[in-house]
Design a protein around this nucleic acid. Structure first.
Length: 861
RNA sequence: GCCCGGGUGGCGGAACUGGUAGACGCAAGGGACUUAAAAUCCCUCGGCCGCAAGGCUGUACGAGUUCGAUUCUCGUCCCGGGCACCA
């Protein structure tokens, strides 16, 4: 046994071993062992691994290694979400090509991941920017197109007039372009969309079955889909054959509808006003509202504004004329882009009516004081009984919702509907570094999908990224100019690329068959490995990524590529990695190494400690995993990530805590090294019963088996590695105490070996390098990681004496040690006789005595 | 505003289905070893009172249920996250 623990040497040795032996490669054949698919969200190759990755991937790795020791056949793959905007920005900045930048990053990050000792099947590695990936994605796109799941529509995008370019939401800062500061406006452009709304109901209902997901994520998805039941009601436009249809969840208030509000984007706004004196004001109003970017328009304090269109529609039940207004708070994307306004019973309509002097008609009366429209200070939105509602007067409003809708339906003026907040997924990006949308625009045939035989549509290499106003692909003539696949005429390729969320919506299935070249997925292999048994990633993906992946899984199912509904059976959302921030008046944010004993090392000024926040480059509160590993080794980095907090909580980084984890590993090593003579050349499996009367040996074995049970339960139940590690720490502490006994008793030596081997195996998934090394240096057969997971023997773990707490009136007054098998009556007797308890019960009447077996006795006096 | 989480020592965090609050680790203090330091080992460590035995108090705050509440119920305050004019 080596004298000192040398993480650098050991880790390099085992990482090379795993590489050379392809230790974590799995075949796709069913070998009788149960499969287990564990997956961590793949990273964007930004350049370097950060602590959030280390934490995420360590958690996944422990699960993978643990399940393997439990006898599962484990699939644990890794890849790269390698399309995206940062590559283009970096390319412009560094005058390189996005591909060069991306693939260089991948090489760096792959090497970094290997240095953490993660048990990936690298044979299955994939990168979404490889044509072998996105080319197959284009096939999925075509199949979706055939099924009507893809369509094109005019949609508003953020637009900077100065830069003449489309901006992503995150490129808009306080309503202005991030690059030039110009005010961002909304511009209507044709956009490709996926019809996710077709699956809205199924996606919502599927949530019920996701028992392995955190409640929080389920709720967020439910709110995002936002189902609401209501009615569609048609309002005839005065002097016209047309009508305006609205969606409302409150058909019961129809008799109180006194005007109509429509969204500025609603084409009716211009239509209705044209030819009237209101045409000018309406046009101006729309132009002004559309100039505001989405964040401004949806901000809290936006004043409700509107303008009369000059037109009226007719309330179908009262026959009253309702002026039609364009209003800035009405959303085109929700419902029908038009709202029947009931000022008495809707707060927004109320405010609007007061501002523009419109009628307020009460139609729902609460119990007690009747409402007076003139005196109301706010809308009455709660339940009540209908008034002023003709035949429905007197009916409870809940009942009236259905009754009024049915009445309208009978006349063809309305129907019950379900409306969703969820919108179709706009996938068009006017960007270079993404998957080309495989479509051709032909002057004669219109939109023609690229036939499957002509796929993939390869992203051209030579493009200029600095052109403005359109996708860089639009300027690449050899890409754009093509022949129409249908008629052969000169045509142009679509130059939009796909949202990168498309790639991450099916990569988890592709890992089952990454070698397949002529189809995206091999149903047999996908159905064998999937669904993913355990998916692990950041909570920030609670809605978008996880919803899109669920959508895609259903689409792929309907395309016959797989046959399950939900992609991820269990989901673990891990918390962020946080650290204290530091700053100095002169130099701003400081890196941790720029602070020494409270002073800034750059200017000598005072370094102030800020709040603890998520590690980020901008705040400089970061720890570089590479440096950390160089100093302490990967096992320490892993152990600390697991020990400092349970996975779902935020982890507070603490340099001293890292040293503590390092010390613990050294403590384990030293225990082996100092007692190698006792431990060497013995194999697990046969640890004899300690000699009768060997209490210390018995206690050691009890601790061992209790620890095995505890660690196993902590991992199985909730992946609470922090408590699992603390249990092993206790075992190791116990082992140190036990050394003298182990040296003097043969049976004690056995118990010592049993406990030590258990400690090493229990830690093997968490600190794999050092555990393998100890296992090997002590001459154990095989690899630690290939040993069966230790099993606990409840008979050995059971205590033969238990401590009983004695309470008097709920306060702890005494403690007793009692034979575990003692009868309740006997325990009760001992408790009452206990010397510490006597003073509290003497001379008082004992009303009740409660005996909880093996726990406590509660005496009520 | 609405919907989810969450408030436990100096710090990170433990506590099974209501049963000894503070496991484990960090920090701190004291001691041993050392010429010295590091490393290591031993002891102390929620607060208050007490020489001690021991007592009182304590899981954001206020009530309640219970023999017994960090755990269950109601109310209040604070922090974090998500959504937000959704008709």
């Amino acid at each position: 046994m080596d004298r000192h623990y040398n993480p650098g040497t050991i880790e390099e040795k085992w990482q090379s071993f795993w590489d050379a032996n392809q230790s974590f490669r799995v075949s796709d054949e069913d070998e009788g062992r149960e499969k287990y698919y564990v997956l961590e969200m793949f990273p964007y190759p930004s350049g370097r691994i950060h602590m959030g990755h280390v934490r995420n991937y360590t958690i996944g790795d422990v699960v993978a290694r643990y399940k393997a020791m439990r006898g599962f056949k484990v699939l644990h793959p890794m890849g790269w979400d390698s399309f995206g905007m940062p590559a283009e920005n970096a390319a412009i900045q560094n005058k390189t090509h996005p591909a060069a930048w991306t693939y260089a990053n991948i090489d760096i990050m792959r090497a970094q991941l290997k240095r953490i000792g993660l048990s990936y099947d690298w044979e299955r590695e994939l990168a979404t920017s490889d044509v072998s990936y996105y080319g197959l994605e284009q096939r999925i796109f075509l199949k979706m197109y055939e099924r009507g799941l893809v369509y094109r529509k005019q949609a508003f995008v953020n637009w900077c007039e100065t830069c003449r370019t489309v901006l992503a939401n995150e490129q808009v800062e306080a309503g202005r372009c991030w690059r030039c500061g110009e005010e961002v406006t909304q511009k209507e452009l044709p956009q490709w969309c996926f019809r996710i709304t077709r699956y809205a109901e199924e996606l919502l209902e599927g949530l019920e079955g996701l028992t392995g997901w955190p409640e929080q994520v389920i709720t967020q998805q439910r709110n995002w889909i936002g189902r609401s039941y209501g009615s569609e009601i048609a309002f005839r436009i005065e002097n016209s054959d047309d009508s305006i249809t609205v969606f409302t969840t409150r058909p019961d208030t129809l008799y109180g509808a006194t005007f109509m509000s429509i969204a500025p984007e609603n084409p009716l706004a211009v239509q209705l006003s044209s030819g009237t004196s209101q045409a000018g004001p309406v046009r101006d109003f729309i132009a002004r509202v559309l100039k505001q970017d989405k964040t401004v328009r949806s901000s809290d304090d936006l004043v409700k504004e509107g303008v009369f269109t000059g037109a009226y529609c007719i309330n179908p039940v009262t026959g009253r004329r309702m002026p039609v207004y364009v209003a800035n708070f009405v959303l085109m994307e929700y419902g029908t882009g038009a709202v029947m306004a009931v000022p008495a019973h809707d707060q927004r309509d109320f405010e609007f009516a007061r501002a523009y002097g419109l009628d307020v008609r009460v139609v729902i009366q609460p119990e007690g004081a009747p409402l007076d429209p003139a005196a109301m200070a706010q809308a009455y939105v709660d339940d009540g009984v209908l008034v002023n509602s003709n035949r429905f007067t007197g009916m409870h409003n809940r009942e009236a919702m259905g009754a009024i809708t049915d009445y309208l339906a009978a006349q063809g003026l309305g129907r019950r509907t379900v409306n969703y907040r969820l919108k179709d997924w706009g996938i068009s990006r006017q960007r270079y570094w993404g998957a080309p949308i495989p479509v051709v625009h032909c002057p004669r045939c219109g939109i023609v999908p690229v036939p499957e035989r002509d796929l993939p549509v390869v992203l051209p290499e030579k493009v200029s990224l600095e052109v403005l106003g359109r996708s860089p692909l639009a300027d690449c003539t050899e890409f754009v100019n093509t022949a129409c696949p249908q008629c052969g005429a000169a045509a142009q390729r679509e130059t939009d690329t796909m949202d990168t969320f498309v790639e991450s919506s099916w990569y988890f299935a592709r890992y089952a068959c990454p070698d397949l070249m002529d189809a995206p997925l091999d149903p047999a292999r996908v159905n064998y490995w999937l669904p993913v048994d355990q998916y692990i990633g950041g909570i920030e993906h609670a809605v978008m990524h996880l919803l899109y992946a669920r959508f895609f899984t259903r689409v792929l199912r309907d395309l016959g590529m797989l046959d399950f509904d939900e992609p991820f059976t269990n989901l673990l959302t891990q918390g962020m990695v946080c650290m204290e921030t530091s700053s100095c008046a002169n130099c701003g944010w400081l890196f941790p190494e720029e602070v020494q004993s409270g002073a800034c090392t750059r200017c000598g000024g005072e370094a102030r400690q800020g709040r603890t926040e998520k590690m980020s480059k901008s705040k400089k509160n970061v720890v570089d995993p590479e440096k950390l590993i160089a100093q302490f080794g990967a096992d320490t980095a892993r152990l600390f990530c697991l020990f400092a907090a349970p996975p779902e909580k935020d982890l507070e980084w603490n340099e001293k805590g890292v040293e503590g984890s390092f010390r613990f590993i050294q403590r384990l090593w030293r225990l082996a090294e100092e007692n190698a003579d006792l431990l060497e050349h013995v194999n697990a499996g046969s640890y004899g019963e300690p000699a009768p009367g060997d209490d210390a040996g018995r206690a050691m074995r009890r601790k061992t088996h209790q620890t095995i049970a505890k660690v196993t339960a902590d991992i199985e139940k909730s992946f609470h590695f922090n408590t699992a590690i603390s249990a092993v720490m206790e075992l190791v502490n116990h082992l140190y105490q036990f050394v003298p006994h182990a040296r003097n008793h043969a049976a004690g030596t056995q118990a010592f070996r049993e406990a030590f081997d258990a400690a090493v195996l229990l830690l093997a998934p968490m600190a794999p390098h050092v555990c393998e090394e100890i296992w090997q240096q002590l001459g154990r057969a095989g690899l630690a990681g290939e040993q069966p997971w230790p099993t606990d023997d409840p008979a050995i773990a059971a205590a033969d004496e238990v401590q009983i707490v004695v309470q008097v009136n709920g306060k702890v007054r005494g403690k007793l040690s009692v034979d575990a098998a003692a009868a309740d009556d006997r325990v009760r007797e001992l408790a009452l006789a206990c010397e510490h308890v006597q003073p509290w019960i003497q001379g008082r009447e004992i009303r009740k005595v409660i005996v909880v077996p093996k726990k406590l006795v509660s005496i009520v006096v």
